[in-house]
Nucleic acid binder design. Structure first.
Length: 275
DNA sequence: ACCCATGTTCTTTG
DNA sequence: TCAAAGAACATGGG
């Protein structure tokens, strides 16, 4: 589930359990998630102390006392965890870092293996190499408008583009556009100043709310569109999928594909462009 | 068995 | 050169 709020939650977890500790060993259960040779990762990590954590968008950085950066990207299904004894390792732990003070192992969990572990010389070098834009939590309204307003591309793919602003994923973009009352297929250059302001405010609102709830979707406010997606298969009957708009109880949320991605919209809150 | 899925990156096509 | 669309990646879960 790793969009910006999840990754921020993982970062805080790592900050609590791993910062200040030295990596005693790197356990590789599945080298598929390594984007660097295993030997290079070991050479860079073992014996190094983790001195801090950082995040840009969906990328989590562990700063080592050597100055090198361990970069975690969680793909579509990545997660972070901790365990003490090998038999207790969470299912789908692909790589783990043994921490020498606590004796805990920091687990990089990823069923689908789209996540990657990398090394970088610096966060700035990584940011440049990956062409990451400003983090979605810190980008200014003016900068957002400057990036989007010249583009005739429809909004949703623009907001998913990590070089425009980093951290928004499929579900969050839908919720941001719903909160801002803008249709995902509006061209970037069609937004008014007022709409840009609403867009920026909705981004901050959705992201800070999600982080406050540690990305636990079930706890999100009832007027969030996320409750209309069929993600919560264990929800009680009275709190299962919300088929209708929280603001228009008679209007069904519509699902379509925009830019190849599943997209949810309230046809009343978010009028289709040209109509 | 079939379809869908939170992300990124590459290829193809216009 | 750029943008848009599609595919690929690897796998679990409904």
């Amino acid at each position: 589930m790793p969009e910006l709020p999840e990754v921020e939650t993982y970062r805080r977890f790592i900050d609590e359990i791993a910062v200040g500790q030295t990596i005693a060993a790197v356990i590789v259960n599945d080298a598929h998630v390594l984007a660097v040779p295993e030997a290079d990762l070991r050479a860079a990590a073992v014996g190094r102390r983790i001195v801090g954590t950082h995040r840009i968008g969906k990328n989590c950085f562990l700063e080592l006392d050597s100055g090198q950066i361990l970069v975690l990207h969680f793909g579509m299904t990545g997660d972070i965890g901790a365990y003490r004894d090998a038999p207790d390792a969470p299912r789908f732990t692909r790589v783990a870092f043994a921490l020498d003070d606590s004796g805990l192992n920091l687990a990089f969990i990823d069923p689908r293996k789209f996540g990657r572990i990398r090394l970088a010389v610096s966060i700035e070098a990584y940011r440049k190499a990956k062409k990451l834009g400003s983090d979605a939590l810190t980008i200014s309204a003016a900068a957002l408008q400057t990036k989007i307003s010249p583009r005739k591309t429809i909004l949703k793919p623009l907001l998913l583009d990590q070089s425009i602003t980093a951290g928004l994923g499929n579900w969050i973009v839908d919720d941001v556009l719903f909160q801002a009352k803008i249709h995902p297929e509006r061209p970037g250059n069609s937004l008014t100043d007022k709409e840009f302001k609403a867009l920026h405010e909705a981004m901050q609102h959705v992201l800070t709310t999600a982080i406050r709830h540690e990305a636990n979707y079930r706890e999100f406010p009832l007027d969030f569109l996320i409750h209309s997606r069929g993600w919560d298969t264990s929800a009680a009957p009275d709190q299962s999928v919300h088929e209708c708009c929280p603001h228009h109880s008679k209007t069904k949320i519509e699902k379509s594909y925009v830019g190849g991605r599943a997209t949810y919209v309230c046809p009343k809150c978010q009028p289709r462009p040209g109509l």
